[in-house]
């Protein structure tokens, strides 16, 4: 058990924006096959954490590792990042699903999914195409191969963006509020796809405001507030028996 190492290890990270201290010492480790949900009120730093973990932004202090790959190391309170090669290598290990999909509007569904595996990973087209078709089937999107994103509903676009991320064969997949831009029915079809991935033991970190979903799908839940993880544990611990007042107050607002 103890020789299994985390796929990602984020240790004591800090981040400020022009004096606004947003992340104040967060530590998060994700083991293979684990599904971690991150919940918390607006402005708590959830997106910032994900953006830094996916290298869209940088931690000021703390360390970041993907498996044995050291992406950033803390040296006297400053996060020192590895060179270009290290960052490039790290980017191959994770995928990110955005709240507003960010599909490439000028590419067809298939090209959205296949372009990076072919042109970034330099994999053979035939192999990528086969995988892309399989992913579309899993996402319930057969028949949409040649459409462009603007011809799809938001829920369909989000499922394409999940397929796009999966076609890179990431070890870990991050989601930042994948359903916040969607109507309730469309939300369900996307959540169903993510549930399906969890059943197949895809390692995932999901920032979400869908409490019922988080409770069902996650092995581990972290409640972030004011730049720290206030409380974490199993869904039963955090959602059904929260210990901290801030967690209780937050969850109360989500009770129907």
């Amino acid at each position: 058990m103890s020789d299994v190492q985390p796929l990602v290890s984020i240790r004591d990270v800090h981040k400020s924006f022009a004096g606004n201290h947003v992340l104040k010492g967060i530590t998060l480790e994700v083991m293979p096959k684990q599904v971690v949900a991150i919940i918390g009120a607006s402005g708590g730093g959830k997106s910032t954490l994900l953006r830094c973990a996916t290298l869209l932004d940088r931690f000021d202090a703390g360390s970041l590792r993907y498996g044995d790959l050291v992406v950033a190391e803390d040296k006297d309170g400053t996060a020192v990042y590895g060179g270009k090669d290290v960052l490039k290598e790290a980017r191959l290990r994770f995928g990110l699903v955005f709240q507003n999909y960010n599909l490439f509007p000028h590419y067809s569904v298939m090209k959205n999914i296949m372009d990076a595996p072919i042109n970034v990973q330099k994999r053979p087209r035939a192999e990528v195409e086969e995988q892309a078709r399989g992913l579309l089937a899993r996402m319930g999107l057969e028949g949409n191969e040649n459409k462009v994103p603007c011809e799809l509903s938001g829920g369909q676009q989000q499922r394409v963006s999940i397929a796009r991320a999966l076609c890179m064969n990431p070890e870990i997949l991050y989601f930042d509020e994948p359903t916040s831009a969607l109507d309730p029915e469309l939300t369900q079809e996307v959540l169903k796809v993510i549930r399906n991935l969890a059943e197949q033991h895809m390692t995932m970190v999901i920032v979400t405001h869908e409490m019922a979903f988080a409770r069902d799908v996650a092995d581990h839940i972290g409640f972030i507030d004011g730049g720290v993880i206030v409380e974490q544990g199993t869904p039963d611990q955090v959602i059904n028996n929260p210990q901290h007042n801030r967690t209780k107050a937050f969850l109360n607002r989500y009770e129907d």
Binding site: T54, L56, R91, F98, N102, V120, Q121, R164, M168
Partner: peptide, 22 residues
């Protein structure tokens, strides 16, 4: 939109690929 650059960056596109293709 910034999101286009960010999606490309996460997918590993180089800067010139991002500009030319996206």
């Amino acid at each position: 939109p910034r999101g286009q650059y960010e999606a490309a960056e996460v997918l590993g596109y180089s800067r010139s690929q991002t500009f030319m293709k996206i």
